[in-house]
């Protein structure tokens, strides 16, 4: 089933590459995120899927549309050939693939991630924190300060972005009058 979904995602990506209308790209990007979240659920990573669905399909669609509001809806055709960009992308992709070769095998019980701190989280977190969900206990209790700082940063930047966009829009309306 994961294979089927991944194939569909590849098809969506090719459609996005061929598409010059940026709205269509945003819409297809939303579809891509939904498929990705479903794959993550099939891989049993429900919390990551939740994030993917809300950030990928919800938030980034809205943000991209907000960005499109300030630009044009059609992608301009490239003046020169993007060879350097292509080379950089291929190099980065190759480096990532090379890095993935060093990873432990899928669901290997001896992998480092399963031997250090995870057993303690899994076994002791309900006793130590009283939070029913393990992921929540890690995020909100063991890494509580980290999460607090993260939330503060995200909130501040979000408020800043909204303030900036607001002003821009109002001044544009005034200039139109």
């Amino acid at each position: 089933m994961i294979d089927v979904l991944l194939t569909m995602m590849a098809v969506v990506v090719f459609a996005m590459i061929n598409q010059r209308n940026l709205f269509a790209v945003v819409v297809l990007g939303g579809i891509y995120s939904f498929l990705m979240a479903t794959v993550l659920v099939a891989l049993d990573a429900v919390d990551v899927a939740m994030t993917e669905a809300s950030v990928g399909a919800g938030l980034s669609t809205v943000l991209l549309l907000g960005a499109l509001y300030l630009t044009k809806g059609e992608e301009v055709t490239e003046v020169r050939r993007p060879l350097i960009a292509l080379a950089v992308s291929i190099a980065v992709g190759a480096a990532l693939v090379y890095g993935s070769l060093g990873l432990p095998a899928f669901s290997d019980p001896q992998a480092p991630i399963h031997t250090h701190v995870v057993p303690r989280y899994l076994n002791d977190s309900p006793k130590e924190t009283g939070v029913p969900n393990v992921v929540t206990s890690v995020l909100a209790s063991y890494r509580g300060f980290d999460t607090l700082g993260e939330t503060t940063v995200v909130f501040t930047s979000g408020a800043g972005v909204i303030a900036l966009l607001r002003r821009r829009r109002r001044s544009r309306e005034e200039s139109e009058k």
Binding site: F23, V26, V46, A53, S54, L65, L68, Y69, G73
Partner: peptide, 28 residues
């Protein structure tokens, strides 16, 4: 897993409305 499905359903609506509102007032 249904919590996630509920989030999906809500987001689906939010996304559709975002796109459509944009179409009514956007640069097209």
């Amino acid at each position: 897993f249904e919590d996630l499905a509920i989030v999906y359903g809500l987001l689906n609506v939010v996304g559709t409305f975002a796109v459509l509102k944009f179409f009514r007032h956007g640069d097209l």
